[in-house]
Design a protein around this nucleic acid. Structure first.
Lengths: 251, 251
DNA sequence: CGAGTAATTGAGTAAGGTCAATTCTTGTGG
DNA sequence: CCACAAGAATTGACCTTACTCAATTACTCG
């Protein structure tokens, strides 16, 4: 049988190559990582708050959210992960979780043991750097999310998230005719944006009535890309989707 | 002359050791890092948005903020850095900045070339991991900040920041009689918490009148630690201030 | 078909923002 | 030592955004 690992891990490798230069041997090391496949159900934490993990979770298909919560149980989604994303690569260095991972729609994930990731990182410094860089990009997205929550009004927040997802789905080839997967319901969207579901609904209506974008049927359609970006005050640089964007000390 | 580097870099090493095990040789490598000392003035960006840096900035004294902004210039502070913090260690892997660094009070920083950090990271995998881990903790703080912005009301946000700073200053031995340095004015505090200066003022008054804490003269005094933590809904685990907190794949 | 979830809409409320005036600090120069 | 200017803190009055509560209308899936 052909090793099925290659096809599962290819999107992860592609993600790394978007931002880091890797030699053929380093690439092969990524593709040779061991993993287990799991189907995860909606609304079930497959990584729980406060546990200690020994593996990281690669999103193969679906949509995964990183949740944090206040003691009284109000949840905030602090990150969204689409296929090709490693949802908790940072757990390699911080295995005791202060977050939970939950599928926002039925999803497939591949779990990769930390021990294997650490072994490869130790063998190939450039790979270690690539992992670190990927976590730094996650942090960059988190920081822009904080700007969104702290400084933008509800309409701009929704528009901003749409713009971000458009870029990220485009980067994995899932943008067709300005349509992208949008597998979040309005409650989950509120948990990302710090809004109530009711208000999310009103803002989606506002975007629709302004002719900027529509969300129907697990799909978002962008009607006026320039207008949406302007409403969102969007600048895609923080997503670091082009290796040309940077030239690090590791060339 | 005794190498003054050791005394400047010691707090940084201490910070790393809080979270990572390092051998004597690895420790020495940290202490031997080359650096330049700079005094930075309030309200001046010493790292600007969009530039490409070749060094990281260690806060030696003072208080440094990481700023991001909307196009119309509204600023959000996404991170606060106290002495011993490396404000932009992540710039080693993402040298093209999507943020700015500014002193919130007159500060002293040490700039360390990326080339030196990369050289040490390549030589010592454990050190590479320690850098990565430190960035992951920054991201963890960022994520909790997002929960704060998205899910807590103004009073709880202010209380939460006070709690966080109490722990962080305590960790560097700058907590005395429940008093900690608080070198933020109310406008800057608003830029951290996503509030207007006017409302920050009202919330500080509320905390004072509730007998929880007071802020005067660049100092915060905690009057009712239990009450403050409860008002903030605070759980310090996300700060990762104890190495005992975790046991990673690198032992 | 019916149950359960998600979306939608309206009406009233409250948290936080805006604007503007006043007071307090702090540093400077005479 | 005092007068003054500039920035920071404080307070009040009013307004807007987003929340709450509640009812109604789609969807989706056995």
């Amino acid at each position: 049988v052909v090793d099925p690992g290659q096809s599962i891990l290819k999107p992860f490798l592609a993600r790394l190559l978007l931002r880091s230069l890797l030699t053929p041997r380093e690439r092969q090391a990524v593709l040779d990582l061991p993993f287990d496949i799991r189907q995860v159900t909606v609304h079930v934490d497959f990584v729980r708050l406060g546990e200690t993990t020994d593996h990281s979770c690669l999103v193969v298909d679906g949509l995964v959210g990183r949740f944090e919560q206040t003691r009284k149980g109000e949840r905030q989604i602090t990150a969204l992960h689409i296929p090709g994303d490693m949802a908790d690569l940072h757990s390699v260095v911080l295995p005791k979780t202060s977050w939970a991972l939950q599928a926002l729609t039925a999803s497939t994930i591949a779990t990769i043991p930390h021990s294997a990731l650490v072994r490869d990182a130790d063998r190939f410094p450039a790979l270690s750097r690539a992992f670190w860089r990927d976590c730094a990009v996650d942090a960059s997205i988190l920081a822009v999310g904080a700007v969104n929550l702290g400084r933008r009004d509800a309409k701009a927040r929704v528009a901003h998230l749409l713009c971000e997802l458009r870029y990220r789905y485009a980067a994995i080839g899932e943008l067709k005719d300005d349509c992208l997967p949008f597998r979040l319901n309005q409650t989950q969207l509120g948990d990302v944006l710090g809004l109530t579901p009711v208000h999310v609904n009103r803002m989606l209506r506002a975007l629709r009535e302004a002719g900027l974008a529509t969300v129907i049927n697990q799909q978002a359609q962008i009607l006026d890309w320039a207008g949406l970006q302007s409403a969102a005050d969007f600048d895609p640089r923080y997503l670091h989707l082009m290796r040309e964007d940077w030239l690090g000390a590791d060339g």
